[in-house]
């Protein structure tokens, strides 16, 4: 017996009339994708998890590809909740994003909630051409209200023009390497998030590092990108500080 394997694919390209077409838009099993109302030249897509999950043993994969001149916004209908399954195996959720020169992707899903007893490995790889633009938000909430979290490992890799600009992994929850909830890593915070913004103009004019709110910082990466890292007591306050940082970037 194995878990559910599901893949969703989105491909966006310029439609030649100043807008964005979606020649590929499909999902299977519990992963559905829906086109929603466009905003100007930007196509909008909503990820809809038709079932709860991922559960132990599941393998989910989402691929989005944005061509030159296309603008794509991807959101999700609700938070993703990692739950324990009948299988003891861990679940995997892989996100693969590629953006071509002149393309722009706004990847803004709802948070991932790690429920007690779950075990999930999330990997997000964003591969950008040198002239591509990206806004990517990742939020992790450790446990539902008042609940102990499951085990969650999350790796985020950003490459621009073939060069790795960011490679980070955060492991937390029972069974994670020691100290994950201590004063060097999360210090008792139950929500952690990152906002990655890639703009070609950052190569010449990087953002200045600054503190945002109480537990967040905006920093220039070693490449045409900026990163906001934030921790917060809960998902609501995390979203507030990430929104504030994004608005700050203009």
């Amino acid at each position: 017996m194995s878990g559910v394997h599901a893949t969703a694919r989105i491909r966006a390209c310029a439609d030649g009339r100043g807008g964005t077409a979606l020649p590929v838009l499909d999902g299977d099993g519990p992963l559905a994708v829906r086109r929603t109302r466009a905003a100007g030249d930007e196509a909008r897509v909503m990820l809809v998890g038709a079932m709860s999950g991922p559960l132990g043993g599941d393998r989910f994969r989402v691929e989005a590809e944005v061509g030159g001149g296309a603008r794509l916004h991807v959101g999700s209908a609700a938070a993703t909740i990692a739950l324990p399954g009948q299988l003891k195996d861990e679940a995997h959720y892989a996100v693969r994003l590629t953006v071509a020169d002149g393309g722009e992707l706004r990847w803004l899903p709802e948070p991932l909630i790690s429920a007690r007893g779950s075990e999930l490995y999330v990997t997000t790889h964003a591969d950008l051409a040198p002239g591509a633009r990206l806004v990517l938000r990742e939020e992790q909430v450790l446990g539902r209200a008042g609940e102990e979290p499951g085990r969650l490992t999350s790796r985020l890799v950003l490459r621009v023009g073939g060069k790795t600009v960011l490679d980070q992994e955060l492991a937390c929850g029972p069974g994670a390497p020691g100290g994950w909830d201590g004063p060097a890593v999360l210090g008792g915070h139950r929500a952690v998030g990152q906002l990655v913004v890639v703009r070609p103009e950052f190569a010449e004019r990087p953002v200045a590092a600054r503190i945002v709110g109480e537990h967040a910082a905006l920093v220039p990466l070693a490449g045409p990108a900026a990163l906001v890292t934030a921790v917060a007591p809960d998902g609501l306050r995390l979203r507030r500080v990430l929104d504030e940082a994004l608005a700050d970037l203009g």
Partner: peptide, 9 residues
């Protein structure tokens, strides 16, 4: 690539 958010912040 193990990271520690509070060390970075």
């Amino acid at each position: 690539a193990a990271s520690a958010p509070l060390l970075e912040l």
